[in-house]
Design a protein around this nucleic acid. Structure first.
Lengths: 341, 341
DNA sequence: ATAGCCTATGTAAACGGTTACATTTTGTCT
DNA sequence: AGACAAAATGTAACCGTTTACATAGGCTAT
């Protein structure tokens, strides 16, 4: 099916020079006389020549390609992050291979191996790992295995290990601060909603618990609710809840939107009777009515930062000192709270 | 950084066989005696040997990899589509390289060339092209160029040409039908909102105009409004509009949400005083309040279908007959209209 | 024993670039 | 004009696989 493409030999012949000269022209560098360069460039453009990346890779030992592993690209937070990462990589002459691994460890592992077999220069794991959850210490074993071959970067999932670089949000602090504010304002029955036991979810939960404890509010198990990551799932869970509550801190914006749906359905006025805080400050916040107050976890900054460090690791031989970068969040107030931005 | 890896020569030497035999063992196929296979496998496992992908790519001319070009992955419609495509490809043993090209032709072209240089087996162009707009016939020249090298599949952007396969929605029909319904119900001043002059936008517009003409409503230019693809952009455009209108048909859900924002801001009751129809039936429809009536363009079906045809084209030599597949849409009624689902 | 055939294995030629090194061309200085 | 350096260009080795083809070795049938 695939037609034969022109290769460097064809170009060389047409331009009446050697392949070395064509290669030199292609790579801009080196010393080629202006006359020859022009002649060769003409042929290259006329024939629409683009070098074969594999052949280049063989010689150069790099394909300038980075693998991105994302559990679910249709999640707005993930897709926004991928967009930023792709942009950053592209600006630096790298391309990305995307792989949607699902949330299961087995899929992640398989996809990571697939990416490695494509000789990516580095790997980015996007989204939460379960590292440190204590439930199963080898849940991140495959990340360490991958790191034996290429530098690995994790975003919002911290894994300790050689050749592994992590960027995480100060999730605990962020939730702690916002919960405190809610309590200070008079809320006495806040609940925390999450859909997973991921690394970052655990941090958020910790922040929530700490704030409650400090304020002398009993943090019983029932104030930390496990929900499905869908709008209706959350709404229904809240509708059927027996115990009362007067504030919701959600682990992501989708869950928060579900809480807003609940409030609208149950006719509880926002923010007077109930306050809701989302997480991620994603595109959803403005779609929601009233618009959603949310904790901005600085996706763009985090992604840009990750890409920058990656380029450093890949292109400088001196080791990058910062293995773990913590990026703080910022609470953005909109219509679902009234605690001061 | 990358460790020096063992290669096939090392394995061959250690196992006391030739590289050809090792290669045969690796690829499972061919006839190798059980004894040799075992001996070689042992060394392979012990040394953790994985073949170099560059070299494989050079030899094989296929990496079971498909390139996906998407203008903007953070758009919920696009990311949902990518998720479906990735899933389908993955199920068939293919991987995908994602490239976010932006909406400009120049970027699309550059990214397409990049993907081709990576020896992808096929290319998928996601989202609207400007083919047939008449404004510039070579706007799709680069797609044809790409098709000279590998089969090209376009989703919602029809391009005529050899080796090009398209899947498009019956956009004109869908908009025509829903507009008719609105008019029949009594709406006399519908407006159509779009952010682009893309192929599918033009079809939608055509359907809108046709419905108006048939019903004897004057379709002046001002009833087809060009807006930015942001919620506030649309809201503000509508707020500042002088001429009155009583129904909105939007080219996508984001625009429709903007119209809902407008209605909420201007205190126009939905759906009594104003009816709004979105397009794509994306995740946003349920976030919106009231929930958004939208035209479902069957993203999953379209993506699955595209992947299926692609596999056929790639793996069977007999030509696939259907170069252009049209997939019909379905209007889904929610809170922003009252015309009957 | 030997011709004849399979089967298992090895040899070497692609694949399409990069690049160290060799060679030719050009230009300068005396 | 001749010597020499510098600049431009060419040659060929190398990267690590796959695979068509060649060959060696084992078996059966005569």
């Amino acid at each position: 099916m695939k037609k034969d493409k022109v290769n460097i030999y064809d170009i060389a012949e047409m331009a009446g020079v050697s392949i070395a000269t064509v290669s030199r022209v292609m790579n801009g560098s080196d010393k080629v006389s202006e006359k020859t360069r022009k002649k060769v460039m003409e042929v290259i453009e006329r024939e629409d020549f683009t070098p074969n990346a594999f052949a280049q890779g063989l010689g150069l030992h790099t394909m300038h390609t980075v693998g991105i592993l994302v559990p679910d690209i249709s999640d707005p937070y993930m897709s926004a992050a991928v967009a930023w990462i792709e942009k950053g990589l592209s600006e630096n002459g790298y391309d990305c291979i995307l792989s949607c691994s699902g949330f299961e460890q087995e899929g992640k592992q398989r996809h990571a191996e697939m990416l490695l077999s494509k000789s990516v220069d580095a790997l980015i794991f996007l989204g939460s790992t379960y590292a440190g959850s204590g439930r199963n210490p080898d849940e991140t074993e495959y990340i360490r295995k991958a790191a034996a071959q290429v530098p690995v970067f994790t975003i919002n999932g911290y894994v300790e290990g050689a050749n592994i670089y992590s960027s995480v949000n100060a999730d605990e602090e962020a939730v702690y601060e916002v919960t405190k504010k809610l309590i200070r304002k008079g809320r006495r029955k806040p609940v925390f909603l999450t859909d997973s036991g991921s690394y970052s979810a655990l941090k958020k939960r910790k922040g929530f618990e700490r704030a409650l404890k400090e304020c002398g509010i009993e943090a019983d198990e029932s104030s930390m609710i496990h929900v499905r990551n869908t709008i209706y799932g959350v709404r229904d869970a809240l509708l059927s809840r027996k115990k009362s509550f007067d504030a919701v801190i959600a682990a992501n914006d989708i869950i928060a939107v579900g809480a807003v749906k609940y409030a609208n359905t149950a006719k509880r006025k926002l923010p007077e009777e109930l306050e809701i805080v989302g997480y991620n400050n994603s595109g959803l916040v403005r779609v929601c009515e009233p618009e959603l107050s949310s904790i901005d976890n600085k996706t763009e900054k985090m992604c840009r930062d990750t890409v920058k460090r990656m380029i450093e690791v890949l292109e400088n031989e001196d080791p990058v000192e910062n293995k773990k970068v913590v990026i703080s969040c910022e609470f953005v107030e909109r219509g679902t709270t009234d605690i001061g931005g």
